[in-house]
């Protein structure tokens, strides 16, 4: 029982670290601000939530475990809001889309 708990927690932590690395590669590779924001806000948020879930599984229902679950819920609620605000600010400050982009309805509507 104890070893199953350990192995499940370790698997969650390894998956979370992998998604964190993929998100950071996306931050380096993708061409403009909006695509980078997509990669980081998805991969890094779920990767960190997976690490926190691993901590909850390793520690069980204790002080550390319940705090980890609270931090995970908080991150899932606030990180998309921050991404939305940053994308809006970048567009208002005049950052252009990637030149090969297909369409920009937001600029056509005069914002």
């Amino acid at each position: 029982m104890n070893s199953i708990q350990q192995i499940t927690g370790m698997v969650f932590i390894i998956v979370g670290l992998g998604f964190d690395i993929f998100g950071c590669i996306g931050l380096l590779r993708l061409p403009d601000v909006y695509n980078r924001l997509q990669a980081t806000t998805k991969c890094v948020t779920l990767g960190t939530c997976s690490i926190l879930l691993g901590a909850f599984i390793l520690k069980g229902v204790s002080t550390t475990g319940i705090k980890a679950i609270l931090v995970a819920i908080f991150l899932l609620l606030t990180s998309p809001v921050a991404a939305h605000a940053l994308a809006r600010g970048a567009h208002k400050s005049g950052v252009k889309l990637w030149p090969k982009s297909v369409v920009d309805k937001y600029e056509q509507d005069g914002n």
């Binding site: 993929f22 590779r29 061409p31 297909v102 369409v103 309805k105």
Partner: peptide, 19 residues
Amino acid sequence: NIDVAMRVLNPKLPINPGI
């Protein structure tokens, strides 16, 4: 997450963005 990871790791970078 799996979708973004596949796009990022692909050497051809298959994106076609727009708003």
